[in-house]
Design a protein around this nucleic acid. Structure first.
Lengths: 127, 127
DNA sequence: TTACATAATGTTATTTTATAACAATAAACT
DNA sequence: AGTTTATTGTTATAAAATAACATTATGTAA
């Protein structure tokens, strides 16, 4: 179990507290009172947290969310559903999807390391 | 069958000719001799071409590729495999994946409109 | 055809997202 | 303690995308 550095912990705390994906510069403005002053400090922390699987990047939004799946301490397969109305992002932790896709990748002749899947539509509330 | 405007056609031609995903500013520098001078012109063409399903955006790379799947004239479900060594990007047009994932989304209670899936790993050549 | 609406374009400036480069500290190792 | 390695702080800049608005082209209906 890796221990976090000060900056990593500060950034992770903000993301954990948030109910929605946060952008890097939003994070920055929220941690400036804690002494993190410049973008590279935020991006470096984000990079490490992603490596550790503590957070994920929502590529279509350039935003970052806490991993909601306690078992994924290495980020190798991520899936999200994204509501186009309320912007809610939910991590899908479905072992069937994961198995299905890993299997598919192998059959396709690819030495697969990870995947990212993003669903777009309307969530239960919004539809 | 929609007809393309001049700018859309110019941008599509460049992307079609390329064997790899192109970034917006790479496209721009390649079409300046044809009279497209500024980023908004490129981005507007890209947006329309995506709407039409002629091209797709590789979110993890901020790059654009021609649709390799002649049947997808509306871009609602895309899947790619991306080689982390040679950067080759291949569109996966597998109706099974598509069916499986659509099905999954529906069961999850989401009114699903589209998805984007990106696999990362090593392609056949590189592994 | 002419008038009106709609869409596409051209252009400048700016915003947003991300990284390069390098000096300064701190942590881990032998 | 001295050396290596990782992390931090900082400034500047690069890369990606959009806002805003004036202009031109295209479609449509009287």
């Amino acid at each position: 179990m890796e221990t976090l550095t000060r900056n990593q912990q500060i950034v992770l705390d903000i993301i954990n507290k948030s109910s929605e994906p946060l952008k890097a510069y939003t994070i920055l403005s929220n941690v400036q009172k804690k002494g993190i002053k410049a973008p590279p400090q935020v991006y470096r922390a984000l990079d490490k947290l992603i490596e550790m699987g503590k957070i994920h990047k929502i590529e279509s939004k350039n935003a970052f969310v806490a991993c909601q799946n306690s078992s994924c301490n290495v980020s190798k397969a991520t899936a999200f559903s994204i509501c186009e109305s309320c912007e809610e992002v939910t991590e899908i932790s479905n072992s069937k999807i994961s198995k299905y896709l890993s299997n598919f990748a192998e059959k396709a002749g690819m030495e697969y390391k990870k995947y990212n899947l993003e669903f777009f539509g309307l969530c239960k509330k919004c539809k």
